[in-house]
Design a protein around this nucleic acid. Structure first.
Lengths: 208, 208
DNA sequence: GTCTATAGAGTGATAGAC
DNA sequence: GTCTATCACTCTATAGAC
């Protein structure tokens, strides 16, 4: 995070996009806010696309850092630990999450990357469930397709939580609620062994 | 649904907004598509805001018609029946649902109406749960706050299902999946009495 | 009701001096 | 690297003829 003009432009752009949305912020405004000329901004970022793409790749890098820090054995403890930092990233790059549809329409390459990330996320949750069944901490699937739907619902809660809060006029990001909601979905599927295991393990982000 | 110029403008605008999003469609384009001049369009709708607001009120009226057709006794059977028509409305006015954040930023009065509708929806699901507990078909709340979170999750599934499909590149609206997902959440909370009751009742949209 | 014509305010992008 | 100046374009909204 140096103090180069390029970084100052990017940080300012992200801030303005977060405040007012991508469509409402012009390159002139960004330049004015940074304190440079529009021509200078164009020197560092050829056009608006370059700015958005750079921001997206920076967010992607932060997400990858969280997800690659995962334990070897996939478990709900991993997911539990990852929820707060992932929501924090979503919050800091919220213009990329709240304007998803506009983003997807305007930037097809970013859409492709984001889509892959989404599918991988669902598959990841599903893998955790399957592993838990294998380990005897999760009961066998009660209804056909239910665990695929469960993985999907967990992904939806994570992905649309920010937007849900925004449209309901909640300013403060409520990380605790999304965690509790996900646990509501998980707990009914735990075996006795599974229930025992979660006690004592979740010190940092406990299950009440 | 008359064939007046005003209605033709509105229908064309809704179609174009659905195809390409509000921000990408200009008044000129709408006028050209209808086959009238921009000046004529301005005669019927003072500006873009008037167009969006009219579309929103029309959707609101359709939603109210679904929800006022409810049985006196609130039950999950009502919700089960309302899911398909409500998703159909969301589909036909999808530009209002997919661009929610932009809509909220640009049209504060619409935002206020939509927000009320959201809160009422959550309260409605919550009321169905509470009534079911009282009627002995739903077990007492397992964990503190769980039924409020359940109502909220059901609302999220309904509200963001369309957007979820759009960002994952699914064109066809999958109504059956959202119904199954909601039943996955409901079933673990049913008492024996509740389980018996749902059999035979859900003829049109069965629970598998 | 419907049209043409245009005012007026933006925008993204670029050329060229320093 | 940074600047000024400007081109070429798009949009909304309105004035006024028919």
């Amino acid at each position: 995070m140096s103090n180069s003009t390029k970084d100052r432009i990017l940080n300012t752009a992200i801030r303005l996009f977060n405040e007012r949305g991508m469509a409402a912020v012009s390159l002139r405004e960004i330049a004015a806010e940074v304190g440079i000329s529009p021509g200078n901004l164009a020197y560092h970022f050829k056009n608006q696309d370059a700015l958005i793409e750079e921001a997206f790749h920076r967010m992607q890098a932060e997400r990858d850092a969280i997800l690659s820090g995962v334990q070897q054995i996939p478990s709900f403890e991993n997911i539990n630990e990852q929820i707060p930092p992932l929501l924090d990233i979503a919050q800091r790059y919220r213009f990329l999450h709240l304007d998803t549809v506009h983003l997807f329409r305007t930037y097809p390459e970013i859409a492709e990357l984001q889509r892959s990330y989404f599918e991988n996320s669902i598959a990841y949750v599903r893998a955790v469930i399957d592993h838990s069944v294998g380990a005897g901490t999760f009961r066998p699937e009660p209804r056909a397709g239910q665990y695929q739907r469960l993985a999907h619902t967990v992904w939806m809660l994570m992905t649309f939580w920010l937007e849900q809060q925004a449209v309901r006029g909640r300013k403060q990001l409520d990380v605790e609620s999304v965690r509790q909601t996900i646990w509501d979905l998980v707990l009914p599927n735990l075996t006795e062994k599974g229930k025992k295991q979660i006690k004592g393990v979740y010190a940092r982000f406990p299950v009440h």
